[in-house]
Each structure stands twice: as C-alpha cells, then as structure tokens.
C-alpha cells in the first residue's frame, strides 16, 4: 500500500509555472506521478508539460474533482496563502517544498490544517515517494529509490537520498520515503509518520533519520516507550559535532535553551531499543541485522 501517496494520488501543482515548479512537474510526470492540474494566479489557460494551468485551486478542483493532493513550489512570502487555499479547496494532502516560511505563519497554517484533518508534509522538505506505486510528490532524485518494504522518515533531503540508496544497494527497497522538513515547525512529526508505517501492511521495517534541534526524536522515543515498538526501527542522528546556539543550515537544526543535542536523541532512542548508526553507511549494516528476517 505505502503511506500518504500511492497509485490513487492525483496532484495539483501550485506554482507550476515557476522555474522549480515546471522542472519538477516534468520530473514527477516522468516518474509516473499523476499530475492533473497546475495553479499560478494570472496564468490560467497556459499549459506546462501538457498540464492545464488555473488561476485558483478551487477552479482546478472543480474541473478535476479527482484531485486529492497538492504540491507547493510558491515562494515563501506567498506560500502560506497557497496552503490555506488548498485546505479550503478540500485537498487532504499538501506537500510544501518551499523553504523560508516565517515560523509564525507555519504554526497558524499547520494548526488550521490539522484541525481540518489535512496532512501537511513539510515545509522545507523534499516530499514523499512511494516507489512500488511509481508515485513521487516531491523533488528527490529517482536513482536513490526502489520498491520494497522499508519505510524511511527524515528531517533532511540529501542525507535521505544517500541513506535510501545505501539501503537499496544492500537489497532493501522502500515502501514510502518521506522528508518531514528541516524547519522548527513541521506539519507531520516522527510520531505521526511512524504510526502510519506501523499500520501499513507493506512496511516491515522503519528507518528514522533525525538531527539536532527540537525534541521530535525524544517525543518519538517517549511515545514508543508507552505504546510499544510494533515494527523494527533503526536510526541515524546528524549533528553530533554541532555547537550550541548555531543554526546548521536548516532553520530547525539548532541547539537552544539546553535542548536538542544529538547526544540526548541518541540516548532516547537507545534507551528503548532503537539502534543508532554511527555513520550513514552503517545504516545498511543495521538493516541487514534488524530487517533481514522480515
């Protein structure tokens, strides 16, 4: 089955006429993703890679009622508007690629989405890919992914491609790979996604790729301590050498107020029996050890 995106996914691309939007629309179409419409205000009537463009999401949905997913490439100052517009048009999965959205906007739009039962992936993320279903709603390179039974959830982009490819080369393909985003506030957290993987019959093992900043990893560990480890999980944490008070590339990758160190996250995972790889390549060894009989 896979999670969040599968063969029934029908996509509208918001910001389709921009450089990134059009480039990745073509890449997603090549991969097999069913994109049915695009939205850019003022560009209605245009086509991008054969996909019709509309001024509003509401009209795109009216003309293509099968739309259930949106991917957003709109620049940061306008991205919150695009998210609200998608929510109000009834779309239930919204993938926000945009980096640099102010955090005050993020907490409002994500609370609104969650109150409406809408899944927001991101912001500032590479998106979601389900290789067995030939669908990606995101910007990740094809070569790192292949069909299989491992679910991957991560706060980063390139590191996810790297680890996914290492898994693939070791013989472990992916059910779904999802980047939840590198901002301090994200629509989905590790608990949300790990729960989805627990419930997904196709997923046999889970890889969690965390990093410094916040307490998403510690919360996942707490959650699993209370509810049980229902499928094997292995992990990697980036940022062991990061100094406190400095943002390491991602807006969310910062140790503040004594919280968010790699040490604390590794300790939390190991205390509940989730092994943590000491290098990205070591994930493949852990996969052999923990996933092989699955």
């Amino acid at each position: 089955m896979a999670i969040i995106v599968d063969r029934n996914t029908r996509v509208v691309v918001q910001g389709i006429t921009g450089k990134e939007g059009s480039f990745h629309t073509e890449a997603m179409l090549r991969y097999g993703t069913k994109i049915v419409a695009g939205v850019t205000p003022g560009k209605e009537g245009m086509k991008v890679a054969g996909i019709p463009v509309y001024n509003t999401v509401a009209k795109a949905v009216r003309n293509h009622p099968e739309i259930n997913t949106s991917i957003i490439f709109v620049p940061a100052p306008f991205a919150p508007d695009a998210v609200y517009e998608a929510i109000d048009a009834g779309i239930k999965v919204i993938v926000v690629i945009t980096e640099g959205i102010p955090v005050h906007d993020e907490i409002k739009m994500i609370n609104y989405a969650r109150s409406k039962g809408v899944i927001v992936v991101g912001p500032n993320c590479p998106g979601v890919i389900s290789p067995g279903e030939r669908v990606k709603v995101g910007i990740m390179p094809e070569r790192s992914f292949g069909p299989g039974n491992i679910g991957v959830v991560s706060r980063s982009g390139t590191l996810t491609y790297e680890i996914s490819e290492a898994l693939l080369k070791t013989g472990f393909g992916h059910s779904t790979v999802i980047g939840i985003g590198g901002d301090p506030v994200t629509g989905l957290d590790f608990i949300d996604v790990v729960e989805m993987f627990f419930k997904d019959p196709e997923t046999k093992g889970i890889v969690v790729i965390g990093e410094i900043g916040g307490d998403a990893e510690e919360r996942l560990a707490d959650h699993i301590k209370k509810t049980g480890l229902r499928k094997p999980i292995i992990a990697f944490i980036a940022g062991k050498t990061a100094p406190p008070g400095k943002r390491m590339g991602h807006a969310g990758a910062i140790i503040t107020m004594g919280m968010g160190s790699a040490e604390s996250k590794i300790k939390a995972f190991e205390s509940i029996g989730i092994p943590v790889a000491s290098t990205p390549m070591q994930i493949a060894d852990l996969a052999k050890k923990y996933f092989s009989d699955k």
């Binding site: 991560s154 706060r155 980063s156 982009g157 390139t158 590191l159 996810t160 790297e162 590198g182 790729i209 990093e211 410094i212 990697f236 980036a238 940022g239 062991k240 050498t241 990061a242 400095k246 390491m248 590339g249 991602h250 990758a253 790699a262 000491s278 290098t279 990205p280």
Partner: peptide, 24 residues
C-alpha cells in the same frame, strides 16, 4: 556538503575517524 543533513553528517564522519572539522 550539499544539504544541511548531509553536511552535518559529514562533520560527524570526520570526527568519527578522529579528525576535527573547521566549519559547516
């Protein structure tokens, strides 16, 4: 490095083998 996660992991990797990263 390219990407925040990969770059952080690269610093960690250098430290893992006993080196000292000068920057991110």
């Amino acid at each position: 490095g390219n990407g925040a996660g990969l770059t952080m992991a690269t610093l960690d990797l250098v430290a893992h083998f006993g080196g000292k990263p000068a920057n991110f």
